[in-house]
Design a protein around this nucleic acid. Structure first.
Lengths: 179, 179
DNA sequence: TTTGCAACTGACTGATTGGTCAGTCAGTAA
DNA sequence: TTACTGACTGACCAATCAGTCAGTTGCAAA
């Protein structure tokens, strides 16, 4: 078993359950059945471990918008993004929670600032490109509103409301983004 | 000067800047020029101080949706909510950031769970009531989507994007919710 | 004045933390 | 065999933390 990957897996789970600040390195190592020194050997610091985790999850975010959409109707492209998001929301619920938590926590936000900036501008540009085909004049503002709508749903589903009617909302959205 | 209120003010500011877990009680007291024991005298624990802060901010959230709307057009009521939110977003930017951070941090989320639940169901019911006048059959789902849209905008403005076009988005929203 | 009580202080403690470091061990190339 | 490497260990340390407590102060009621 690869102990480095094991550390990433265990730490991700613990960070989701307890938060980054509230998860001692010793707990990660006990859970992963690995010595404490190994974390610092592989990742240099606790912060380094966090960055490694965040870089891993960045790939999954990219997947949501990077579906090959060449020659597709732009509305279909928007619907693809919506559907991918809803699938990922249910599959990787905890990972999304962790992402939000890391972005909102001032210390981790600072630590991951560059990665977060890259991520968000990547998504913005991707959506802008699609809206360029629909409504070029208002592409920017419509992209911001499209992203806000999806982020708001994710936020409410993951952390605010219990019994969130995710499927119904997905249907409504798909209907809304069908020309 | 009321030292208890002084503690709440200073702690709020520091929690926004550094996060709850990363703000030692000693730092709060040094900044507020107050002895450490006083925190435990007034609030019993660091967690108690946090709850006191969160209860204070709950009032501000309630204000957004509690404008007296009797006899108003339901669309006007929705526009009132939108406008109040945008005003508050700019006036109390840091307070909103703190709220999101506390909700997303697993430990503080658990600590404030009851208050968060009260808050969100209060808002949901308020919006539901308005949509009951517009589209009774879909009042629930449309309320969830209305709230998600606003929450998403707040989230993106406060923590994701720099240079967020808040005014333009407000105009778009107002236009959208004008029957 | 005396009594009583809440506000307030700051030195102190026990527990926990991230990080270090000297050294072990398995594998591999010469 | 020898020399070397990088994964791995766990005892250890300095620093930091939330919370305690014995005592002081200021004020209001009797």
């Amino acid at each position: 078993m690869d102990k480095k990957q094991q550390l990433i897996t265990v730490a991700t789970q613990l960070f989701v359950e307890r938060g980054f600040e509230n998860t001692p390195v010793s707990l990660i190592c006990d859970t992963a059945k690995v010595s404490k020194g190994l974390v610092f050997h592989h990742f240099k610091s606790k912060d380094g471990l966090l960055r490694a985790i965040f870089e891993e999850t960045t790939k999954k975010v990219a997947d949501i918008s990077s579906i090959d959409n060449i020659n597709e109707d732009p509305y279909q492209q928007l619907r693809n993004i919506i559907n991918s998001l809803f699938v990922q929301l249910e599959v990787d619920k905890t990972l999304f929670q962790l992402n939000l938590h890391l972005i909102l926590q001032p210390k981790t936000r600072r630590l991951l600032n560059d990665l977060i900036g890259q991520r968000s501008s990547y998504i913005l540009n991707h959506v802008k490109h699609i809206y360029g085909l629909i409504d070029p004049e208002n592409a920017t503002i419509r992209s911001y509103m499209f992203i806000a709508e999806l982020d708001g749903i994710a936020l409410n589903y993951l952390t605010i409301f219990e019994d969130y009617p995710l499927q119904e909302i997905q249907q409504q959205l798909i209907a809304k983004y069908t020309k």
